[in-house]
Design a protein around this nucleic acid. Structure first.
Lengths: 305, 305
DNA sequence: ACTCCGCCGAAAGTAGCTTTCAGGTGTGAC
DNA sequence: GTCACACCTGAAAGCTACTTTCGGCGGAGT
């Protein structure tokens, strides 16, 4: 995994078609200042940039041609030429499609109805971005591992901890043996028990949460198949992950903390995992689901209607 | 402005964006045989041709590069480069055009990519429905109560329990005193402590979960302001709720349990509550948010970049 | 059959894209 | 506080891909 050739970084992902804005936001933190300027211009005005040559875009962003090419590479394209083609596609798409309506940020004095509309729109956007940016190959691999696992551990802290527990609850319902310890120490002691054929999943938006990385590392060292669900595909957590599932990153602000959209994104990934695993293990999953539903029935008081 | 150069024929029309196939058909009769072959290829497979260089397209059609360029000119573009961009746009357009074919239910044999698309679409739908059906008056009243509350209790069990904890975590971060006990007994003993001016929130999709209704009833009896977040506005839980926030209910199936969409819907409501409360209490909420962010900073290992 | 017209592709020319390399700047170690 | 290192950054060389030119060749009319 040693990329001794400095300039030859090529994202493992194939050229993204429409998930460009999402990819820009995902990768923005790992970009240098100049590259961020280029990425910003590209995300902000795809149509305009598609009309520019390398030189033109370099001048517009006040950088050099080399930087533009580097940015294109980072975004997963072989070169600027291909990025430009993708931009043209994107431009045409949003030309014909719907115009973004309430893209404005949430203000302190927005009325309640506006907040609802903006939040709903944002979360929808997050879902679309996540779906577009999700690597189905990695997802398929993770699903296969889960479906065959003897035992499954899921690690998450804070907001991601709730997502971890959500996945744990779901997997239990289809008869799999899943744990989502919320205590980091318990997580590590759990991880020690894992071995080849087991699966460990780490959920962390930042990709650098020590309390989550540590148990994943332990599981990795013990031979378990490891999966990372993170918004930073270049973060430390991916070191110990056999499969990486990338969540999208929405722009954030004071009234729109990152935790909100990352949670939405993570939950979609988790739902995908769950649904696909259910497909794979349908023979056993279906009766298990039915049984868990049945078990809860008497916990509800008789319906008023 | 000397147009005596033979090869410089430029159609009066500006570069056609999407009406390319039509233009090809219109101009086909006035084309020479070789050019027709090129035009045919372009109209037949825009996406494929967009991936080719001049040389590639020339070889594919058994013609020369010059002919390809001439065809591009005839179609109204300054050169092949621009035709190629238009093709990329066209390809992306008709790619996205057949996107809404995923409205169907999820099947056991759906490929992974389809599952992702369908789930994302469904959750987007759920969000839109929820936002549309949310009563902003009730929401505003609940927000006012929360912003002024001495103490806040949030009750939820199972999947809804995670939503309750999510809200609890968030409210804590803006300096409010919130508890989300996951144990029903603890919930009741907690509820006893509430009094007028406090707020209790019950989250239950079915609206009839005894373990959640009971603590809400206790809180209600003790004079607390009570809020219900439920998918059944006519359910038993609303008996003890001063304000009812309705979540939407999507159709479900075996591979798409109700818990999935109800959770999405509940989370949107919770986000709305949180965001509006943050607005209302901005003076104290903003520094509290900043502090909680700061406190977590050192829990992340040093950034790779 | 000859000549004229115009389509056609090879090759030269050029613009734009890519790569290399050296200078500068910020960061971490001592 | 100073030094050294790593890494970003843009200038310029190198190369690919697009454009233009020009001569040949086939068909149509006479």
């Amino acid at each position: 995994m040693t990329n001794d050739v400095k300039e030859s970084f090529t994202g493992d992902a194939p050229p993204a078609p429409a998930a460009l804005a999402a990819k820009v936001r995902t990768l923005a933190p790992s970009m240098t200042r100049s590259m961020q300027r280029v990425a910003e211009a590209v995300a902000g005005d795809p149509a305009g940039c598609a009309a520019l040559t390398v030189t033109g875009l370099a001048e517009l962003t006040g950088t050099s041609e080399a930087t533009v090419v580097r940015t294109a590479r980072l975004l997963g394209y072989p070169g600027y030429r291909d990025l430009r083609l993708a931009l043209a596609g994107l431009a045409a798409q949003q030309q014909s499609g719907r115009a973004p309506a309430v893209t404005a940020d949430i203000a302190v004095d927005d009325p309640v109805a506006d907040v609802v509309a903006k939040l709903a729109y944002d979360e929808q956007q997050t879902l679309a971005d996540t779906a577009a940016g999700l690597d189905t190959v990695q997802l398929g691999a993770a699903v296969a591992a889960l479906a065959a696992a003897r035992r499954i551990d899921i690690y998450g802290i804070g907001a991601s901890g709730l997502v971890a527990q959500d996945l744990g609850q779901k997997l239990l319902r289809i008869g799999l043996i899943a744990h989502a310890p919320s205590d980091p120490h318990l997580a590590v002691t759990n991880a020690v028990q894992l071995r080849s054929g087991d699966v460990a999943i780490a959920i962390t938006h930042s990709g650098s949460t020590g309390d989550v990385i540590e148990p994943l590392r332990v599981a990795f060292d013990h031979g378990a198949t490891t999966v990372a669900i993170t918004g930073r595909p270049d973060g430390p957590v991916t070191q110990y992950a056999d499969h990486v599932l990338t969540t999208s990153t929405a722009r954030e602000s004071e009234l729109r903390p990152a935790a909100m959209s990352s949670r939405t994104s993570q939950l979609l990934v988790v739902d995908c995992l769950f649904t696909c695993v259910t497909q794979r293990t349908y023979e056993t999953a279906a009766p298990a689901l039915a049984a868990s539903y049945e078990a809860l029935a008497h916990r509800h008081s008789p319906r008023t209607r």
